[in-house]
Design a binder for these strands. Structure first.
Lengths: 220, 220
DNA sequence: GTGCTTAAACTGTGATCACAGAATCACTCA
DNA sequence: TGAGTGATTCTGTGATCACAGTTTAAGCAC
């Protein structure tokens, strides 16, 4: 299975955007590991395009710190220190907390069925130890919540955080010793949203954002 | 005075980054107006470089919504609707509020003299109706506060908001009817920081972030 | 076997060209 | 006078090449 891009069918108008989106998703679901290096020419070959669109996609990701780009050196997936990771999860707590608070006002019945389905997916994929699929379900759940704010800028910022924490989370999950220690607060978040309890939705969401940090501590 | 870039002396390692930084600052201080269009080739000529570094800088700015980039159409400075502006200022309130709260713990005496100087600059430049210089001083003040958090990701995110609101603020300021209506909360913020009152620092910072919105309402 | 040197392979970066779509402006015809 | 239409100019996009650092690996000396 090659990663070849089809310029005709894909919605995006230019190749750079497609490659950018593809790599971005791979980061979110942890398909790219920390410290992994990405070469423009190698990727260009995989995507079956020239180097040009790839370099723009990589530079774009580097500009939002989703990748590290040093001049004349290969782009790399950041290998976060615990401090850096803590900073990112703090931001997720702040932004997603605020988002959950706002979302309460806009949520509808159809949203709950969707959110519940995402939680089901998370449980299934967690049981199968399918790290990428789990992180994708987790992302879908949270994205649906913060998309209810209708604040596009807020959504973009939170999403950028998922891109940056993805590889780090994936590494933490695969190295987890006791996989039964499943800490999702997601059902409780749904309950709080249904109850219209904005403060509780915020508190639970903030707590969930710190789950990633606990992953780290368990590793020592 | 041309904008020519000097690859030797500038700290950045590549031209793209220098052009990116230059345009970014121009956006922050409102030197680029909403709906203004930026052409790759024109900018390349001004900076005295080829089109390549410019296109990467523009794409990068577009990726963080500091510019609008539609395929095959000229890049433009976004012309924010009032809703979009409200979203951005809401985010500034959330992030800068949280930052101020954290900053209280890390602030030192030397910081107060710096902050006071920025406030002086703001008053002077406001009196002279020098919009760009005023926005720069304002930016310096806020940047110094949120840089005290030591959270690099947080700093980047807030800064990205200043890039996006800059052109819009500049337009609001120059169209302001009663220039005496000066609404800075900055001296009070300094006082709250000095008193170690994190909650008050947060409240005042949040209030200050909404100042931009009031600008808009005054215009009708 | 170990350490140093050197050469080859690989890295991003910048410039230049070809191309296709968008916008603009002048011209024509009603 | 006005609307339609054509060509010209301008737009970003992608490919290809040359170049200069960086990294890697092989080879040589000790």
């Amino acid at each position: 299975m090659d990663k070849a891009i089809n310029p005709e069918k894909d919605g995006s108008e230019n190749l750079s955007a497609q490659i950018y989106a593809d790599l971005r998703l791979k980061l979110i679901v942890g398909e790219l590991r920390p410290a992994e290096s990405l070469s423009i020419r190698t990727l260009a070959e995989k995507y079956n395009v020239s180097a040009m669109p790839v370099r723009e996609a990589l530079r774009q990701l580097a500009s939002e710190n989703a990748l590290i780009g040093v001049a004349k050196k290969a782009y790399r997936v950041p290998d976060l220190t615990s401090d850096e990771a803590a900073n990112l999860f703090f931001l997720r707590a702040v932004l997603e907390g605020a988002a959950a608070e706002v979302a309460v006002a806009n949520i509808k019945e159809a949203d709950f069925t969707l959110l519940s389905r995402f939680v089901d997916d998370m449980e299934k994929t967690w049981a199968k130890r399918d790290c990428s699929a789990f992180l994708l379900s987790n992302f879908h759940f949270h994205r649906h919540v913060y998309s209810l704010t209708g604040n596009g800028a807020l959504q973009d910022m939170i999403e950028a955080l998922y891109v940056r924490t993805g590889p780090w989370l994936a590494l933490g999950i695969v190295n987890l010793e006791n996989p039964d220690h499943w800490m999702g607060e997601h059902p409780e978040i749904i309950a709080a949203l249904r109850a219209g309890d904005a403060a509780e939705a915020r508190r639970l969401t903030e707590e969930d954002a710190r789950w990633g940090m606990q992953l780290y501590r368990e590793l020592g």
